[in-house]
Nucleic acid binder design. Structure first.
Lengths: 157, 157
DNA sequence: TGCTTATATCGTAATGGTTACTATTAAGAG
DNA sequence: CTCTTAATAGTAACCATTACGATATAAGCA
């Protein structure tokens, strides 16, 4: 199904309207699915298709999308919140690799934690609704070139 | 070894001094090892043993402790940075359970990810230096009482 | 003991991401 | 068409964090 139609239905299901502004924001997210955009970045990009849109609307819309579990808010420790479309029912099933040297951020789509989550349920009486798994380290192909260098990285989120 | 002495040596090893202010801050961290204190919380507590201490010093000291890998800076999405003493060589070997209902935060000391990290090395050419694993969900013993209620929780980090 | 230099601290002003607020506009209901 | 409610725009306020200038403490050296 067309993802916009799909999201529109999710809005309607909870008595929210998919206004042109909201639609423009959702489109930016869909067009940049691979990236983790900050509010400011979303704002910049949406301006080209909807120049009159206000920053506050971006904040409000992203918060709403979060509530509807359409996007996920995340924080990589660089001082700004970043947003990521959730992949339908695979919701939380992805992890991140963050390179200390070049800052590259790769997403891994597999879910490696099902077994662990079962163990949490059994041993801790804790039923998981979401998780987050980030690895920091270096790509072996990256070890020589000091694009940013580990030294100047700010402390980690 | 006395943890203060140990940390003092780590300071000296990198030509930093363990001033009374810094020592007071470290002591607060040691005395609250189980909690993840925010800067403001550290500031409040350290005031009782060192009333004259300034907020900026807390910020600077925690940043320094971060650089020395004595504490870890983390972000749980509540808008403030929180700090956690690193457990000597087990550095990154702990995970978090965060309860949606009551907001409780439990720490799990085991490292469950060694196998995964080997796989990352082999399949992705990525060598891990640190990781972070947080689970969100609910404790089964917690399901009834609506201390905070999931509804009013802010969107997740 | 004094002088010099570097390091830390203090208090506060500035910064910048985020939130709150007021007026205005658009959408539905009757 | 009018009333009511929801959404947006623009901006002011908020608050955690950082930067800054002045003062104080410690170390090195004569």
């Amino acid at each position: 199904m067309n993802p916009i139609t799909n999201i529109s239905q999710q809005f309607a299901a909870q008595n929210y309207k998919l206004t042109p502004q909201r639609e423009a924001i959702v489109k930016v997210l869909l067009d940049n699915e691979e990236e983790h955009l900050s509010v400011e970045e979303v704002y910049m990009r949406v301006k080209s298709s909807y120049p009159h849109l206000g920053l506050a609307t971006v904040y409000r819309t992203l918060e709403l999308l979060c509530e509807l579990h359409i996007v996920e808010k995340m924080n990589f420790g660089d001082g700004v919140a970043r947003y990521d479309l959730r992949d339908c029912d695979h919701a939380h099933m992805h992890h991140h690799l963050i390179c200390n040297v070049c800052g590259r951020l790769e997403e891994i789509k597999d879910d490696w934690l099902l077994e662990l989550e079962q163990r949490l349920e059994a041993e801790y009486g804790f039923s998981v609704t979401d998780h987050r798994l980030d690895f920091k380290g270096t790509y072996n192909t990256c070890k020589r070139s000091g694009c940013k260098g580990e030294k100047e990285r700010k402390a980690v989120s």
